[in-house]
C-alpha cells in the first residue's frame, strides 16, 4: 500500500497548484523523456527533480519509498538490456554477451524508470482527488455526471484496503479445523485469495449501484451545476509548467552540446 486511501495533501508546494496543470506537465515531461536513451540526460534531471522536490517540502521518506519501489524495475531493465542489444562485446557473463550499446541503453532506461517513478510518487503524494476532479471539470470540460462518478470511484478506492481485509477475515472464519497457530495471520492460498478477490468485486459493484442511485436522488446531472470550492488558476501554475519544461529542454540541450545525448536514431552508430 503506498498511498491508497491517503488523500489529504501534505503541505507541499505542489499541492497548492492546479492539479490539471500538474498532471498535464508531468505527462508532457514524460513524453519528452522518451527521446533520450543515454543515462546522462535523465540522470541530471533526476538530481534536479530530487532537489526541487526537497525544496517544495516533499519529505525524504516519500522519495526513498519511491526509490525502493522502483529500484527493482530499474535493475531489471538494466539487466535485460545489457545482454540483448547488438553492439561491441565488452564482457561475457554466464554465457551471455554484454555489449557497449546494451550497457548504455540499459543504464539510460534504468535511470529513466527511476526518474519517472520519483516524479509519480511526488505527484501522487500531493494530489487531492476533489481538487483534481473539480479542476478537470473547470479546465477540460469533464461533465458533472462524470465528475460525480469519478469521486464515487475514489470513495470506493479509499475503502478498498479495509474491505479486502474484512472479506478475507470473513472467509477465513469459515475454515474448519484447529485454531490458527498465529492469530491474525490470514490464509493465503491462491484459491482463497482468488475467491476473496471475486467477493470483493461483487460487494463493491453492489455498492457502486447503490451509490449511483444515491447520486441520482441528489440531482446529479439535473441541469447546470455550481462549484462550491473552485480551484483557482494562478500565475504560479504557469511558472510551474514553464520551469519544468524549460529545465528538461535545457538539460537536453546541454547533453546534446556535450555530445552525450543519444536517441534510438543515433545509438550504436
Amino acid at each position: 500500500m503506498t498511498t491508497a486511501g491517503r488523500t489529504a495533501p501534505g503541505p507541499t508546494a505542489l499541492a497548492r497548484r492546479d492539479p490539471t496543470v500538474v498532471l498535464g506537465t508531468l505527462l508532457v515531461v514524460s513524453l519528452l523523456l522518451l527521446v533520450p536513451v543515454d543515462p546522462w540526460t535523465p540522470g541530471a534531471l533526476l538530481v534536479a527533480a530530487v532537489a526541487a522536490a526537497r525544496a517544495g517540502g516533499v519529505p525524504w521518506r516519500t522519495l526513498l519509498r519511491g526509490a525502493a519501489t522502483f529500484g527493482p524495475f530499474a535493475v531489471s531493465v538494466l539487466a535485460v538490456n545489457l545482454v540483448t542489444r547488438p553492439g561491441v562485446p565488452v564482457a561475457h557473463v554466464a554465457g551471455l554477451t554484454v555489449t557497449d550499446v546494451g550497457a548504455l541503453v540499459g543504464a539510460g532506461l534504468a535511470v529513466r524508470t527511476l526518474l519517472v517513478g520519483t516524479l509519480a510518487v511526488v505527484v501522487a503524494s500531493s494530489l487531492d482527488p476533489v481538487r483534481l476532479v473539480t479542476s478537470l471539470h473547470q479546465r477540460v470540460g469533464l461533465t458533472s455526471r462524470a465528475a460525480a462518478a469519478l469521486l464515487a470511484g475514489h470513495r470506493v478506492l479509499e475503502q478498498l484496503p479495509a474491505r479486502w481485509v474484512a472479506v478475507r477475515q470473513a472467509q477465513a472464519a469459515r475454515l474448519p479445523g484447529p485454531r490458527p497457530r498465529r492469530p491474525g495471520r490470514l490464509p493465503a492460498s491462491p484459491r482463497l485469495l482468488g475467491r476473496a478477490a471475486f467477493t470483493l468485486l461483487v460487494v463493491t459493484l453492489r455498492q457502486a449501484q447503490q451509490m449511483a442511485v444515491a447520486l441520482e436522488t441528489r440531482g446529479v446531472g439535473s441541469g447546470p451545476r455550481t462549484v462550491h470550492r473552485p480551484v483557482p488558476l494562478g500565475p504560479g501554475d504557469g511558472v510551474l509548467a514553464a520551469t519544468a519544461l524549460g529545465v528538461v529542454l535545457l538539460v537536453g540541450l546541454v547533453t546534446w552540446r556535450l555530445g552525450l545525448l543519444e536517441t534510438w536514431g543515433t545509438v550504436g552508430r
Partner: peptide, 17 residues
C-alpha cells in the same frame, strides 16, 4: 449515471488490481 459510476468503480477496482 449508473453506467458512469459502474465504469469508475470497475476502473478503480482494476486500477488497484
Amino acid at each position: 449515471l449508473s453506467e458512469l459510476v459502474l465504469l469508475a468503480v470497475l476502473a478503480v477496482l482494476f486500477g488497484f488490481l
